[in-house]
Nucleic acid binder design. Structure first.
Lengths: 214, 214
DNA sequence: AAACAATGTTATAGATACTTACTTCAATCC
DNA sequence: GGATTGAAGTAAGTATCTATAACATTGTTT
């Protein structure tokens, strides 16, 4: 879990007249503000202030507020995709650890960056069916499907792999929401995440049938 | 609150100078607007317009915007609690049907009223730890725990009942979110909900051990 | 009936989102 | 090297929303 230093890079005011990197700095500002003020508390004006420019400047780089948010979401999803590949790497292909590592990372992401998590999933926007975001989502889900298929010893094309992977997704997604909303705490859920993940993957995926025993 | 025929009762403008039922009508307006404009698109001004009063009138009944939203959420949660008792009723105590009916109702609620669902869970607000809402949540979750305990043939006080119930909650909660966000469709999930629920309750709860045979 | 409480109204201050018209910078062309 | 050109930024204007204050109307209590 690198602290995502890249994403939350320090925001520095422009050097000269031309900012030079306002586009990325605005995306960084979204990442910061969305954690500070909540996913729905973000404002373009404040992002501009944070980047040290006027409130109208962002509109030179993005069509509107929504475009900024979507760019930030896409940015975050790409980082998540890369991170999920990374957390898988140390574990043997088809091992339960590989599957659980994916789930744990998803949950960790939500807990560490609840504002961005809410933005990625909770906000209604993107009526215009943002294909880039949807495609990036498919990449991420594809990783999960493959891990599940490997674990179960079946093809990733087997419809059953997609179904089982989806069940796992609902669990970690639901748990992430309930955690950042404080509902899990309110209901006094005492369920260490590793145990939760293990219980679910065992119950839903069965025992590993993978031949690969690296 | 028994006075309000239904949550989504028609909103009628006031009769005379004094509205007579503005409190409940504003709550009804939240229910409507939150579906029309999205959970984050709600405004007090528009709710007031919908109820046929000036934009300042709502502040006679609620401290601020947040209080209106929380009142609407509490209203919805109480309805949900009642509905969950109701959908359980036709099924034998401890039957898998009873458990699945709860999950199905939760999902149906999210699909039918995604705006309210987002409001109930997705919005950051209520920093002031709204106890009324938390308590109502406990009531609802208590129903699930009891259904699970009956199904497993254990006591509702058994910590294991709470854990298993929580897993079910994560699944239906996560599935609800992924459905209303369109993620399930995007990822081409072809998984009829009854089958999803059955697969999960079987995998997570095991076979029924209840004495009551249907 | 008069005072009071509750619940409306209008008016207004302060934020914010977004747009438009105008200004400044800096790289390129002649 | 100076004028041109277009990108980057500023300032100002419109619209909407939250929330408060001061005033108006109705119903209730004494």
């Amino acid at each position: 879990m690198s602290e995502a230093a890249d994403n939350l890079a320090p925001i520095e005011a422009k050097a000269g007249y031309h900012h030079g990197d306002l586009h990325q700095q605005l995306i960084n500002a979204v990442h910061t503000l969305v954690e500070e003020k909540g996913a729905d508390g973000f404002s373009v004006a404040e992002a501009a202030r944070k980047a040290g420019v006027s409130s109208a400047a962002p509109y030179r780089h993005f069509k509107d507020k929504d475009a900024i948010l979507r760019a930030a979401v896409l940015d975050a999803m790409e980082k998540m995709r890369a991170a999920m590949e990374a957390v898988m790497a140390p574990h043997p292909v088809g091992s339960p650890e590989a599957v659980n590592a994916l789930g744990q990372h998803y949950i960790d992401f939500a807990r560490e960056r609840p504002g961005m998590f809410r933005l990625m999933f909770g906000i209604t926007r993107s009526e215009e069916s943002d294909c880039a975001v949807a495609d990036k989502g498919s990449e991420v889900f594809g990783i999960v499907i493959k891990a599940v298929a490997d674990y179960m010893g079946i093809s990733a094309d087997d419809p059953e792999a997609r179904r089982r992977a989806y069940i796992l997704w609902t669990v970690v997604h639901g748990h992430s929401w309930l955690t950042i909303d404080g509902k899990a705490d309110q209901q006094k859920i005492d369920f260490p995440e590793p145990e939760l993940l293990q219980a679910v993957s065992k119950g839903v995926l069965g025992r590993p049938t993978s031949a690969s025993d690296h």
